[in-house]
Design a protein around this nucleic acid. Structure first.
Lengths: 218, 218
DNA sequence: TATATTTGTTAGATTAATCTAACTATTTAT
DNA sequence: ATAAATAGTTAGATTAATCTAACAAATATA
């Protein structure tokens, strides 16, 4: 059994290694806001538990076992977010903080029931995939809105940032998952876009926002 | 903010002091399965935080503040049990373990929402009263079935023990809250009873079981 | 390549929560 | 009323998770 603290390290490693599979001590330290020596010693401990491949001065990598355990924590987190939105009518901007705590509950039956009540969802309210019961996660190929071209018609399918402030901003613009967006023009130097969607004929989205919106091309 | 550990001491004190308002270090130690010296030192700490009246060799008493904070934890526990039974269709024998963990979640909105979805319940699935938002709990005057007389017609309104085994036993006998029970005879020397209820014309209940069933006289 | 910067590790201290062993106070029973 | 039993406390050790200070390795830069 892993401690709550260990679970948080595993989860952070899982999330950070999404790109290249490797994470530096420094990166992990910054992400968790925990000083590097503390991270080093935890990595040694997780190394002994065969959850992380640890060697001095080498980048960190989760083992297969580590990836599985981390995936299961993230599964609990995302199922919880979905449950809060779908069954308890929370807004998608409210659920991260609560799920951050509930993901550490030890009760297979509890999450099994959530999954069942939700109809075995594949994505959470922010469009992130929910790992399966073995901790495995299908990786998805959504594009960033910022990588699209003028004239593209796309479907908003996810966000790369679940901070309350960002999601509240999207709420004010009626930007929710599933809507169709048409790109009317792109401002080269700052990456901002002029788009239309729903009842909004013309909206300006900053480069930062476009970077954070994940879309599927039709 | 109290730690999870502190919360568990507060809750235990609250539950144990239901009778006389005072608890011995020994009692608390046994209940929590934590050695007495550890309990003593935690009591000093809670004393400094003004949650407990602590004096060497004197019985322990929660302060007003301590009683409020403990009541709020128990509120979260009981709301959770109710939510698990009513909204997630768990059995009443399954919910204690899960609620034991969820009671430590810090999120007023989460429990507020539960309360609302449940229609502001006053009792949990085992018939225990749910403290209000200020941590105050109405004390209730249910009698034990074992204190009733032959011929009494009573309503089963609560249980004093929420262990899975006991509740599963009640399930097998179709004994659930709300049913009407008629006492047909009492065995003096062991306190066991012959009763009838629902479709069961004659059932034998041991003295131990009768001690644990709370009823309201008509 | 030599130096400076950044990254990572070691050593040692701190805090919370726990324990055991030894001692003291209170309560119970003869 | 004294001895025995029970309850409570003190002292000191342990473990997990954190920190700072000092040092070492790796990387970037001049």
């Amino acid at each position: 059994m892993n401690s709550l603290t260990e679970e948080n390290y595993l989860k952070a490693l899982f999330n950070l290694s999404q790109e290249n599979g490797e994470v530096s001590v420094n990166e992990l330290s910054k992400h968790l806001q925990i000083k590097m020596p503390t991270v080093t010693s935890m990595m040694k401990k997780l190394g002994e538990k065969k959850l992380v491949h640890y060697e001095s001065y080498k980048p960190l990598k989760l083992t297969e076992k580590g990836r599985r355990e981390a995936g299961l924590i993230i599964r609990k987190h995302r199922l919880t977010e979905m449950f809060l939105v779908e069954q308890m009518s929370f807004g998608w901007e409210q659920v991260h903080e609560i799920a951050e705590q509930i993901e550490h509950i030890h009760s297979p039956e509890f999450f099994e029931k959530m999954d069942e009540l939700l109809g075995y969802p594949k994505f959470d309210p922010h469009g992130s995939p929910i790992p399966d019961k073995t901790g495995k996660m299908e990786w998805i190929h959504f594009s960033k809105l910022s990588d699209c071209k003028v004239g593209d018609n796309v479907k908003l399918s996810g966000v790369t940032n679940s901070s309350g402030d960002f999601l509240k901003f999207l709420n004010t613009r009626e930007l929710k998952l599933g809507i169709k967006i048409k790109i009317k023009s792109i401002e080269k130097f700052d990456g901002s876009m002029e788009v239309s969607y729903g009842k909004r004929a013309s909206e300006h989205l900053s480069g930062l926002v476009c970077e954070r919106l994940l879309v599927e091309k039709e």
